[in-house]
Amino acid sequence: MAISRRAIVLAAGAVLLALVPPVAGLLNQPFYVDLFRRMMIFAIAALSLDLILGYGGMVSFGHAAYLGIGAYAVGIFAFYGVDNGFLQWSVAIAASAAAALVIGVISIRTSGVYFIMITLAFTQMLYYLGISLETYGGDNGMPLKTRSQFAGLVDLRNPSAFYYVVLALLLLFLLLGRRLVDARFGMVIRSARSNEPRARAIGFAPFRYKLAAFVLAGGACGLAGALLANQTEYLTPDFMHWTRSGEIMFMVILGGMRTLFGPVLGAVVLLGLEDVLSALTEHWQIILGPFLVVVVLFAKRGLFGLVSRDG
């Protein structure tokens, strides 16, 4: 059996990502470890959005909510001196999943513009909640006292160690996501996206499957939020700003919806371009905007569709 181009691209990508810390060390450019770690954190957020947006057809315009909840879970624990990472990250996942459950129950029975507006409204609510939490810095946010501690197992203060933790989690989520969308569970939400009346007519009741996907995606993005808090070592309501939701959605579309790998590529390219262009000119968004428009217009299946035609 021929190895698919998709598999080659994936393997090459994983190797390249794994090589970032040693290469950055050789070049004496530690900044790149930071940049690529940030890309991978957003890649996790983007691929969790791909599950519900790409495979489930649910245009959630509030994915940043879970990023914020996950980050605040870590930050608030740290604020009170609780720095156990297992606890912090578990709560980050659970709280985001719980929020997704509430938002999902209310939004999933709607569709189209209503769905977008409801998910957006909830995220705005959380954003303003973040601003109103004066104890935790209000709209200025607050620094994270210490990075999450893992009982000496791994030290996140070591940039490379932290980097490989994020890489391992990204690869884990890629694997879990791939299995999930191809398993019976994934087939239900994909069939409902394709033609919901037909899915119902053959006997599927898609609601609880879509809700479950929504909750899983929320939990995964909550973990990305916990990672982000550790990455920035700073906590701010901006994590939940609607433009952040838009950015994550753009990563998915830019990289290629319904591919899981595409959103990872989208996160790398978007944040990479942001970094390169912002160094060249302060008007970098004027260059980035048209580029994104061109990709969306001419690469219907996103960047990943260009490199793996067998998908």
């Binding site: 999930l180 019976r184 569970f185 087939m187 053959i202 006997g203 499957y209």
Partner: peptide
């Protein structure tokens, strides 16, 4: 898919359908 809809619940996450 139609067969699957009539083979119990679909909360299976691992085996490729």
């Amino acid at each position: 898919l139609a067969v699957q809809a009539h083979s119990g619940h679909s909360f299976h996450f691992w085996r490729p359908a």
